[in-house]
C-alpha cells in the first residue's frame, strides 16, 4: 500500500501502461455498437457496383461499374506504409471484391516502403508468396512494383505506359502480358483509378480525361482528402478501419474490419469514461480547494 501511495499519476510512463492496458482490454472484450455508414463510403461502393458519370470535360465519361475485364489502376502512392495498420482491412476487402468481379488490376507503388508493405501484407494473401507465379498474373493482375517518378511519371504514363516502364516488378516484359494489351494509354485505357492515399490525380486525370477516381486512406487522411471528395473529384472514399467495416457491410464480403472497428469503439468508450471521470475529479478538487 505504501508503494502504491508513491505512484505519481502525472508520470508519462503510466500513460504508456494505461494505453496498452486499454488496447488489450478492447482486443479481448470488444463492445458491439451499430455502424452508421457515411456518404463517401456509400459513394465508393456505388461507383464500384453501379458506376458513375464524370463530366468535367466534354464528352462525359460513363463508367458502368466494375465487371469482367474492367481495367482498374491502383496507385499505392501516398503514405500507405505508415497508415497500413489503419487501411489494411479496407484495402483487402476492396481487392477481394475487385477480383470477384473479374477486374484487371494494375498496381503501382510510388516508394520502396509502400511496395514492401503490399508485398508483405496484401499480395501473399491474394496471390500467394510468389504473386508472379499465380495463374492470374499477367492476365488479371500485374504488379509494376516501385517505379520512381511520382506525378511526373503519371503525367507520362497517360500516353504510353509501356514505353516508359517496359518491365514489371519481377523483370517480366509488360508487352508480353495479355492484360497489358489494352491497358497502356492510361488517359483512356484506365476505366477506374483507386488511389491509396494518393494525391494530385484530380488535375492529371479527373479534370482532363474524366477518369473516375476512388480514394482509400487512413482515418487521419480523411480531413484533407475530403476536400477533393466534396469538390466532386473523388467519386467515393473509404477511410481507415471504419471505412473497411462499412465496405464489408455494403458488399457483404466477410473481413476483419468490423471486429477491428468494435475494438476502436471500445477504446473510444473507455477513453471517454476516463476523460469524464478525470474532469469530474478535477472539478470536485477545485471545489474542495475553494
Amino acid at each position: 500500500m505504501n508503494e502504491m501511495a508513491k505512484i505519481n499519476w502525472k508520470d508519462t510512463r503510466l500513460i504508456y501502461i494505461m494505453v496498452f492496458g486499454i488496447i488489450y482490454i478492447s482486443s479481448l472484450a470488444p463492445i458491439a455498437l451499430p455502424v452508421p455508414i457515411v456518404q463517401w463510403s456509400k459513394d465508393f461502393y456505388t461507383t464500384i457496383n453501379e458506376g458513375v458519370t464524370v463530366d468535367f470535360n466534354d464528352p462525359p465519361r460513363e463508367f458502368g461499374g466494375v465487371e469482367e475485364g474492367t481495367r482498374v489502376f491502383v496507385l499505392n502512392s501516398g503514405e500507405t506504409s505508415k497508415l497500413w495498420g489503419d487501411m489494411s482491412e479496407a484495402v483487402t476487402t476492396v481487392w477481394k471484391d475487385l477480383r470477384a468481379r473479374g477486374a484487371n488490376i494494375l498496381l503501382w507503388s510510388s516508394s520502396p516502403d509502400n511496395a514492401a508493405t503490399l508485398n508483405k501484407y496484401l499480395l501473399p494473401l491474394m496471390y500467394g508468396i510468389n504473386p508472379q507465379n499465380h495463374p492470374d498474373y499477367g492476365v488479371k493482375f500485374v504488379n509494376l512494383g516501385y517505379v520512381a517518378g511520382g506525378n511526373q511519371l503519371l503525367e507520362q504514363w497517360k500516353d504510353d505506359l509501356i514505353a516508359i516502364t517496359p518491365y514489371d516488378a519481377y523483370g517480366n516484359s509488360l508487352a508480353d502480358m495479355p492484360m497489358m494489351s489494352n491497358f497502356n494509354e492510361l488517359k483512356v485505357e484506365a476505366d477506374l483509378m483507386i488511389g491509396l492515399d494518393a494525391r494530385g490525380l484530380e488535375t492529371i486525370y479527373v479534370v482532363r480525361y474524366n477518369t473516375p477516381v476512388l480514394e482509400m486512406g487512413g482515418t487521419d487522411s480523411a480531413s484533407y482528402l475530403a476536400l477533393s471528395y466534396t469538390a466532386g473529384y473523388f467519386k467515393g472514399m473509404i477511410m481507415g478501419q471504419r471505412g473497411g467495416a462499412e465496405y464489408e457491410i455494403l458488399s457483404g464480403i466477410a473481413g476483419k474490419a468490423r471486429s477491428y472497428l468494435q475494438n476502436t469503439f471500445t477504446i473510444s468508450t473507455i477513453m471517454v469514461i476516463i476523460m469524464i471521470v478525470a474532469n469530474v475529479q478535477y472539478v470536485l478538487k477545485k471545489k474542495e480547494e475553494n
Binding site: 488496447i23 482515418t219 476483419k256 476502436t264
Partner: peptide
Amino acid sequence: TITTTALGKINLVQWKVL
C-alpha cells in the same frame, strides 16, 4: 484533424495488437 489523427494512430497500434 487532431481528433482523427489521434484515432488513426490508436487504430495503428490496435491493428498490430490484433
